[in-house]
């Protein structure tokens, strides 16, 4: 998707924030379905990736659902499970929050799959006035991140073999102490690297005056139109709920 990443991030942030105060079940479900459709058709997110992400989200949503169902009491009692009464109001709110989780998670997947971090940082520098030092610091840190999993694995095994009682082939220790020491070693290595990277970046003239950009990220009228369209759809869903009478806000939580 050639959508300008800054505009995309801003738009999706607003589109996500829009459900913050919504507590009825219909609105987030509709938005979730729309987001899934957009991810598949517009974002070209592979169906398999999306499906796997949705399955992971379902566990999360399920927990949100059950806790809200059991910790709320409002409206008619629909069922009694052991000591807990399930009420109609709780069911509505629980469904709403579960659907909201699915919606936000889907938007997140859309963002991760379709955004190149380097392009995003360049675009944030160009279009959101993020200073060059900050965006290149983040990009350099991103390179550190690429090396983190290998570094983590190396530290974990290097520390494990220090134990003379370790049996050959034994899995790496998972005690909080073992993990803590490994996190600490990782952190020390990262801080050391940060200092060297800062020196290297500065020696290359970062932050020392006017600069050009080799590959500008374009910001076209189309980007803004797309943003308006997305926000229009979200607003439309909210307005439809308002006119149709099913939209409800945080007042429903304490009713």
């Amino acid at each position: 998707m050639a959508w300008n990443p800054t505009v995309k991030l801003g738009t999706l942030l607003v589109a996500s924030g829009a459900v913050l105060l919504v507590t009825d079940p219909v609105t987030p479900v509709v938005l979730w379905l729309l987001a899934t459709g957009a991810a598949l058709l517009l974002g070209r997110v592979p169906a398999g990736t999306l499906l796997r992400a949705q399955l992971a989200l379902v566990a999360f949503a399920g927990s949100v659902f059950s806790s809200n169902l059991l910790l709320r009491h409002d409206g008619d009692v629909l069922a009694v499970v052991g000591p807990v009464e399930v009420t109609s109001g709780a069911l509505a709110v629980a469904t709403s929050f579960a659907a909201r989780t699915l919606y936000l998670g889907t938007v997140s997947v859309l963002l991760v799959v379709t955004t190149d971090p380097a392009r995003l940082m360049v675009s944030l520098h160009q279009h959101a006035r993020v200073p060059a030092t900050t965006s290149y610091a983040v990009l350099a840190a991103h390179r550190v991140l690429e090396l983190l999993p290998a570094e983590w694995e190396a530290i974990r095994s290097a520390q494990a073999v220090r134990d003379p009682r370790r049996a050959a082939g034994a899995p790496l220790p998972r005690s909080p102490r073992a993990l803590g020491t490994a996190v600490f070693a990782l952190l020390v290595a990262a801080v050391r690297r940060a200092e060297r990277t800062a020196i290297a970046l500065e020696s290359r003239g970062l932050g020392s005056g006017p600069r050009t950009t080799a590959h500008k990220v374009p910001l076209r009228a189309g980007d803004v139109v797309a943003a308006a369209a997305v926000l229009g759809v979200v607003a439309g869903v909210l307005l439809a709920g308002w006119w149709g009478g099913w939209l409800s806000g945080p007042a429903a939580l304490t009713a």
Binding site: L139, A140, R143, L147, R193, R196, T197, A200
Partner: peptide, 10 residues
């Protein structure tokens, strides 16, 4: 000295 720490971009 450190080759990895002074290459900052992808």
């Amino acid at each position: 000295q450190d080759p990895a720490a002074q290459t900052c971009l992808d």
